[in-house]
Design a protein around this nucleic acid. Structure first.
Lengths: 351, 351
DNA sequence: CTGTTAGCGCGTTCAG
DNA sequence: CTGAACGCGCTAACAG
């Protein structure tokens, strides 16, 4: 590995001069500059970022901690973060916690050890243990997607409550009165917020939430499958299902298929979270969150905070989600004959 | 930021002793050990990884450079890499080149600067400029998914030629004689290999490839869409399409919809690359690559090389892909009545 | 078992 | 405009 020193020797100057040329800081005579650059090219010198970081105690690196890297919602956030960070000269470390608080804490420790400049965190639960640890080590944090119980942090998220309200109102508007809710973990704010929005829509329509099936599970396909089986085995079946995220919806659809049910003929389904455009057959009615924007805004907020001289107060950004009506929602118990929705059909009415 | 020194002072020992306790290297009396640990806990000390890395000139970090982080094929590879690396105490830096050679070179420079221990590379083209640069800086490399023109590198990939052969033979077996190929970039080995496999299947069936439409484009939805439009506008339409990857297939499906064509009634379509289990409606007949395994094997190969005292010869691992027949492929111009494959059907025959 | 010395590669500080 | 000295935080290599 060639170092500043090697270059300096070859160019016949001091290391400091080379350093200045490399960083464009301070002055250097054109002649010296040229000979240094020649030496750099000849040796293929590349600065050792580690040493530079140790010296300056700034790593120009942000960490993005998400709960499920397999979920396109989070990969889209990741792209937003990466784009904004890259544009300002920051690198990004991606960390995947698999919805586990322990993994999250492990990662936070690693990040502290690696001296990242800031952490963008999608917390696995609403507890703020990780946040406290990060705070203790003076690492700035932006919380994404989910709320924490204890506050005073920068936050960027979509409005889960309002989104859920919208999509459930859509179902009610279609005539549904028995609408099951398949939510994620109760300790995750997006879950509880979405259930709140669901309840608000019911209340507004004068429907007693006590008569409804509201299940908390996990944001996974398996959980969606299990919850749907529970729902179908109940004495009174709902006519529609509100899935708390895309993976829950996948499991639910699978379970409905297995039960031989037609969507939306026998059961409507609506979902929080869209799929990326073009992905397979888009037939689900969804609430679409501005995932890219969430990531981008969070990274920008962080970098702004890092660049600021004086302390900045904690800010919260709540972005709007959009209802996209497709083919998975229809009025309940259609009595008129409807042919099973074949694929051709689905394809001809993409949105 | 508390340092080794702070801990040493508080515990009344030398920094070296603290270092030894922290790393579990060398001996330390239980008494000293205890008091050091107490000091560490009290101060909430966490080692500065940067300094450690600078000293030891090992970062315990691998880089994974992929061409499209939005593609589930690559995110699955990423999980394989992450799991294997994490298990051995390595961190992973993810880099996304968007199929651009320039971005790739930029990233390679960053990685050299950051002194990662090794690079897992999905090259944007079959040129080996990045490889040469990495070599020059003594960074070990494992090439994933794609071949390079010039060799002597560790490689892990699935067999594109054989996979394409399989799936095209499947089409021929169904009776198709006009099969269009929608490939990725010609300079990417997976593209050319898949076209080779396609040609082999044709040749074996005595079909002249000269009578077929073979298009090279990009691994994107837009390109798949455009190529499909080209195909449909030709004087003689094919009865089946072989899509070079999942995104090309998405674009193709979209274009077929717009042309009012039924799949597989009017046109069969088969695809290289599966979607993750559970994703939307799995109706595509595909060649499924062992993506997770590719990532895992690559990371293990790298770590083995890093751990080895003596030089290891370059190795190549070629994994098998599997044909999964679903509903998007059927005999051409079915004359007998075939019911449209409805959803229930799709589900009962997942693979 | 523990401490001392030295330096990883770089950039800040201050002379020249 | 350029260079010398120093230290970021840590650990390898020796003492003792």
């Amino acid at each position: 590995m060639t170092t500043l020193n090697d270059v300096a020797k070859l160019a016949g100057v001091s290391t400091m001069t080379v350093s200045r040329v490399v960083n464009g800081s301070g002055y250097a005579s054109p002649a010296v500059k040229a000979s240094v650059n020649r030496a750099i090219a000849e040796l293929g010198y590349m600065p050792n970022v580690l040493a530079r970081q140790l010296r300056s105690s700034r790593t120009q690196t942000l960490a993005l901690v998400v709960t499920d890297i397999a979920n396109p919602f989070f990969t889209t956030i990741a792209r937003g973060v990466e784009d904004a960070a890259h544009a300002q000269g920051y690198a990004v470390m991606f960390c995947n916690t698999d919805e586990s608080v322990d993994e999250e804490l492990d990662y936070v420790r690693v990040l502290i050890g690696r001296r990242v400049d800031g952490v963008l965190l999608v917390p696995a639960t609403d507890s703020s243990k990780s946040l406290e640890l990060l705070r203790k080590h003076n690492l700035p944090v932006v919380v994404l997607d989910r709320r924490l119980r204890s506050g005073e942090v920068d936050e960027v998220r979509a409005d889960s409550e309002a989104g859920a309200y919208l999509v459930v109102r859509h179902l009610i508007g279609l005539g549904h009165r028995q609408i099951a809710a398949l939510a994620g973990p109760e300790a995750v704010s997006t879950s509880s917020d979405r259930v709140s929005g669901y309840r608000r829509a019911l209340a507004e329509a004068g429907i007693d939430a006590g008569t409804q099936q509201i299940l908390f599970g996990e944001y996974t396909e398996a959980s969606g499958h299990a919850m749907t089986e529970r729902i179908l085995s109940a004495s009174e079946r709902p006519t529609a299902v509100f899935a708390g995220n895309n993976f829950i919806a996948f499991g639910a659809i699978q379970a409905l298929r297995e039960a031989g049910m037609d969507i939306p003929g026998d059961m409507s389904i609506v979902v929080f979270d869209d799929l990326p455009q073009g992905w397979a057959l888009p037939f689900l009615t969804v609430i679409s969150q501005p995932a890219y924007e969430i990531g981008k805004r969070a990274a920008e907020m962080m970098i702004e905070r890092l660049a600021s001289e004086k302390p900045i107060e904690a800010r919260t950004v709540v972005l709007q989600s959009n209802l996209i009506v497709r083919q998975s929602s229809a009025p309940p118990r259609a009595t008129a004959f409807r042919p099973a929705p074949d694929l051709a059909n689905l394809m001809e009415n993409p949105a």
